[in-house]
């Protein structure tokens, strides 16, 4: 609501001067009123006025809920208090104590979900980066069909997440899916039709689906990074006798380092927080082996309606992500300055 009213003064000012009118009349109306305010003050205030709508919305939807979430994590916010949280009694640190008590059912399942998420993130980020880099490097220079390939590779990224993931869940069906059809009927690699969406295989199914959906992002950014490397560098090194491998190792990859720093961090944060892929692939109950942390918190909050405990887990997740991001930025920046 705040959003729709704040930008209006600017818009009105614009519509007040139709294109046919003399160019000078546009600024005059509001200018006369504003003339009462010293010019310097106006100059100083304008940028703040311009970012005000964005600030208000960020506060409302991100900052305030985050603070509320932290407060909730110290409350005994069970289903009895969801509609009237002011009555919820304080829980002290109890929500946190349960979450990190790995002998309790809640704590041990959170730990298991965390381990699964770490393994998933390492593999998924690694694969997305590897495929993205390989495609970006091999698509350097121009050849026939390059534009078509680029469009094709970007399509999974443009597709709404649920549409792509639903298709994979059909392909992973035990009896009517394409994957088992290839593995069992056509190639005979396996004798029995395995289940892909329950049990241990669900981790593989999740990984394949996720990489299919997200590697185009790595490709997109790395391709732009590769294009930004000056041709002079390659020409100069070719005169010095450097071959393709040498150029890849000594020019392309080092020049991509700043891009890689951003891509890997963004991929890490997206992957660690991914909710859409497991939610659409498995429905509301993800199998233990593919129980990513976001869906774990979601389930344990909305199944038990214990929002206090869910909030405590969210805060722990945030602290972990902040810690990893800080360590990562310090480590990669130091390496960059040393190089």
């Amino acid at each position: 609501m705040v959003a729709s009213t704040t930008p209006r003064p600017g818009a009105r000012r614009g519509s007040g001067s139709p294109e046919g009118g003399p160019p000078r009349s546009g600024g005059r109306g509001p200018g006369r009123v504003a003339a009462l305010i010293p010019v310097r003050l106006r100059r100083l205030g304008l940028p703040y006025l311009l970012i005000l709508p964005a600030i208000v919305l960020e506060l409302l939807i991100h900052v305030v809920p985050m603070l509320v979430g932290m407060w909730m994590s110290f409350l005994k916010l069970t289903q009895f208090f969801v509609r009237n949280w002011s009555a919820a009694p304080s829980a002290g640190l109890a929500n946190y104590e349960i979450a990190v008590d790995f002998d309790s059912a809640v704590g041990s399942s959170l730990l298991r979900s965390f381990v699964v998420t770490v393994a998933f993130t390492v593999l998924a980020v690694g694969l997305c980066w590897l495929l993205g880099t390989a495609a970006a490097v091999l698509m350097q220079g121009s050849f026939r069909g390059r534009g078509v390939l680029r469009t094709l590779f970007l399509t999974p990224y443009a597709l709404p997440a649920y549409a792509g993931v639903i298709t994979w869940s059909f392909m992973f069906q035990r009896d009517s899916g394409l994957v088992n059809h290839i593995l069992v009927e056509q190639s005979g690699l396996l004798d029995e039709r395995p289940f892909w969406l329950i049990g241990g295989n669900s981790f593989v199914a999740l990984l394949v689906t996720y990489v299919w959906r997200v590697w185009p992002f790595a490709f997109l950014v790395l391709m732009a990074g590769v294009q930004n490397i000056s041709d002079d560098l390659y020409e100069a090194s070719a005169i010095d006798g450097a071959g393709w491998w040498r150029q890849l190792r000594s020019i392309t990859l080092p020049m991509l380092r700043p891009v890689n720093q951003v891509v890997v961090l963004v991929l890490f944060l997206w992957t660690f927080n991914d909710f859409n892929t497991p939610y659409v692939l498995f429905g509301k109950s993800a199998p233990e082996e593919a129980d990513l942390i976001s869906i774990h918190i979601y389930q344990s909050s909305f199944v038990t309606w214990n929002f206090g405990s869910g909030s405590a887990m969210s805060v722990l997740l945030l602290l972990f992500l902040l810690l990893v991001t800080a360590v990562y930025l310090v480590a990669t920046s130091r390496r960059r300055t040393r190089a």
Partner: peptide, 26 residues
């Protein structure tokens, strides 16, 4: 401002979900 706005993009959605749900309901 730039850094704060951009970093909110990186926070897990689940972090905002429960509080926003509570705020909206209440």
């Amino acid at each position: 401002f730039s850094v704060t706005v951009l970093s909110t993009q990186m926070f897990p959605g689940i972090l905002f979900l429960l509080p926003l749900f509570m705020i909206f309901v209440n």
